[in-house]
């Protein structure tokens, strides 16, 4: 989408995650869609850091849901940019994926159908991120990473990518570790080399949403029964119900919320420092004046406000929007100043 003649558009966000491996990864996508629906940000690209085709299919189902709800029949026509998927390997299918992709109606027909049939219907993760960043204005993009850093590390290895990131990406928000020290962490152990490379070489600030923050700000399970009643089937609710009746720890939601409203005061920030990862995936944050990393810190006073914001955005009903912007018209045109003579209209 082009905004060149209308000044800078809202912040463009790229979402990179191990989608579908946990409920929080799905919730974060829903939250990003909620903010995008209100024109607070734009979700410009999605990549998946776990090499699992079912993850891509689940993600496509969610994306298709939002696209069809917002653009109606044109959803199939405007398929949007392709999903990025990590290149090699295989991770086991998660219960969330099965819960949505295998869901059938009483006639045995699948409720949700993905447009992704095989790996060639997806793109290489780092290529999607690079191509999407190229279409953003300088300093007008952010990346939310909630999973292994595989795609981001490979992005850094593409020719010219470091300069591109430097130019376009305001900050990277990633999930993992605990402040100031964390035990072994799946996001890190899944690709130790990748997270180390990203922490060392990423050219713009890195903000970290730790696990302790996710636990302190869980997404309420009751939301799935109360907030999604506008739709008989909603892939986000259908996926997350698998998590049961417990509230869902969600560092990914904190990361996505910060990316959208960094200045809203939902979180405090730690001093700058450097996060290092040991061989077993444990993390240590060492404060330093010249460090590029900062943690998001929990503020108990903001808890209620944050949870409400989560619920509002995650369950936001997609609003149909027009495919083309209507001509700009003033609802109430200014009245001519009788003191001034009328001036000739300018042609553009």
């Amino acid at each position: 989408m082009q905004f060149s003649s209308a000044g800078k558009p809202p912040l463009g966000i790229v979402y990179d995650s191990d989608f579908g491996m946990s409920a929080e990864s799905v919730l974060a996508l829903a939250l990003l869609r909620g903010f995008a629906g209100k024109n607070i940000s734009r979700l410009v690209g999605i990549s998946i850091s776990s090499p699992n085709l079912k993850a891509a299919q689940l993600c496509d189902v969610v994306e298709k849901y939002y696209a069809s709800a917002t653009t109606g029949m044109a959803a199939m026509f405007f398929q949007g940019p392709p999903l990025g998927l990590a290149e090699k390997g295989k991770t086991a299918d998660s219960p969330l994926m099965k819960a949505v992709l295998d869901l059938k109606d009483p006639d045995g027909k699948h409720i949700y159908e993905s447009r992704i049939a095989d790996i060639n219907d997806t793109a290489v993760g780092q290529v999607v991120i690079r191509n999407m960043l190229m279409a953003q204005h300088a300093g007008n993009a952010a990346i939310v990473s909630a999973g292994p850093a595989t795609n981001l590390a490979k992005l850094l290895m593409l020719r010219g990518a470091a300069d591109l990131i430097q130019d376009k990406v305001k900050f990277l928000v990633l999930t993992g570790g605990d402040y100031p020290k964390g035990k072994s962490e799946t996001n890190f152990t899944a690709d130790i080399d990748a997270i180390r490379k990203v922490l060392a070489d990423w050219p713009t600030p890195i903000i970290i949403a730790g696990r302790e923050l996710g636990k302190a700000l869980p997404y309420p399970a009751e939301s799935f029964e109360k907030d999604f009643s506008y739709a008989p089937h909603h892939p986000v609710a259908d996926a997350c119900r698998v998590a049961g009746s417990s509230d869902i720890p969600a560092a990914a939601l904190a990361a996505a919320l910060y990316a959208n409203q960094a200045d809203a005061g939902y979180f405090k920030l730690s001093d700058t420092g450097t996060l290092s990862i040991s061989e077993d995936g444990a993390s240590t944050f060492q404060p330093s004046g010249d460090g590029k990393h900062r943690f998001l810190l929990f503020d108990p006073e903001k808890k209620q406000q944050i949870i409400e914001k989560y619920r509002e955005m995650v369950s936001a009903k997609p609003v149909p929007r027009m495919l083309r912007r209507p001509p700009q018209q003033n609802a109430d045109p200014p009245k001519p100043d009788p003191a001034k003579p009328p001036t000739a209209e300018k042609k553009s």
Partner: peptide
């Protein structure tokens, strides 16, 4: 031969 989408 079908490559992955976005193959340069």
């Amino acid at each position: 031969i079908v490559y992955r989408r976005e193959t340069p």
